[in-house]
Computed example of a mutant assay.
Amino acid sequence: MIEGILNFIKELKIRNESLFYFGLFCLCLTIIFIVLTKLTTTQVHGVNAWFKPFKFAVSIGVFAWTMAWYCHYLANFNITPFNWVVIILFGFELLYITFQASQGQMSHFNVSTSTYSMLYSLMGLAATIVTLYTAYIGLLFFTQTFPDLPNYYVWAIRFGILIFVVFSFEGALMGSRMNHSVGAINDNSNWFIVGWSKTVGDLRVSHFIGMHALQILPLLSFFIFKNTKATIIISIFYGLLATTTLVQALKGKPIFQKTETTQIKE
Results as ranks from 00 to 15, higher is better:
residue 16 N to A: 05
residue 129 I to D: 02
residue 206 S to D: 02
residue 79 I to L: 12
residue 213 A to C: 07
residue 44 V to E: 07
residue 226 K to Y: 04
residue 152 Y to N: 01
residue 210 G to Q: 05
residue 200 V to A: 01
residue 80 T to Q: 11
residue 93 E to W: 03
residue 127 A to V: 10
residue 147 P to R: 00
residue 254 P to A: 02
residue 191 W to V: 03
residue 38 K to H: 03
residue 182 V to R: 15
residue 143 T to L: 14
residue 236 I to Q: 04
residue 247 V to M: 13
residue 67 M to P: 06
residue 112 S to E: 14
residue 241 L to P: 06
residue 262 T to L: 15
residue 228 T to I: 14
residue 166 V to L: 15
residue 40 T to S: 13
residue 187 D to K: 08
residue 15 R to N: 14
residue 45 H to P: 00
residue 151 N to V: 15
residue 119 L to K: 06
residue 78 N to E: 13
residue 248 Q to R: 10
residue 117 S to H: 12
residue 47 V to G: 14
residue 176 S to C: 13
residue 109 F to R: 02
residue 158 R to S: 06
residue 59 S to E: 11
residue 145 T to H: 07
residue 158 R to P: 05
residue 12 L to R: 07
residue 70 Y to G: 10
residue 91 G to T: 08
residue 41 T to F: 13
residue 115 T to D: 03
residue 89 L to T: 00
residue 69 W to P: 01
residue 242 A to G: 08
residue 171 G to K: 12
residue 203 L to G: 01
residue 236 I to P: 05
residue 123 M to D: 06
residue 6 L to P: 02
residue 151 N to A: 15
residue 12 L to H: 04
residue 220 L to S: 01
residue 13 K to Q: 15
residue 134 T to H: 05
residue 13 K to M: 15
residue 184 A to I: 04
residue 26 C to N: 10
residue 218 P to T: 02
residue 242 A to R: 05
residue 204 R to P: 03
residue 185 I to R: 09
residue 83 N to W: 04
residue 30 T to W: 04
residue 234 I to P: 05
residue 125 L to Y: 11
residue 128 T to H: 06
residue 39 L to W: 05
residue 152 Y to F: 11
residue 263 Q to A: 12
residue 266 E to Y: 13
residue 148 D to M: 11
residue 146 F to S: 00
residue 200 V to W: 00
residue 208 F to C: 05
residue 66 T to W: 04
residue 195 G to V: 00
residue 181 S to A: 13
residue 215 Q to I: 13
residue 77 F to L: 05
residue 240 L to N: 00
residue 141 F to W: 09
residue 215 Q to M: 11
residue 187 D to T: 09
residue 61 G to I: 07
residue 110 N to T: 03
residue 35 V to A: 11
residue 41 T to N: 14
residue 67 M to C: 04
residue 89 L to W: 03
residue 222 F to R: 06
residue 224 I to Q: 06
residue 107 S to P: 11
residue 6 L to D: 07
residue 9 I to L: 15
residue 12 L to W: 06
residue 29 L to C: 07
residue 117 S to D: 10
residue 174 M to E: 05
residue 87 I to A: 09
residue 67 M to Y: 12
residue 247 V to P: 01
residue 109 F to Y: 13
residue 18 S to V: 08
residue 32 I to Y: 11
residue 54 F to Q: 07
residue 119 L to W: 10
residue 261 T to W: 08
residue 82 F to T: 00
residue 177 R to Q: 12
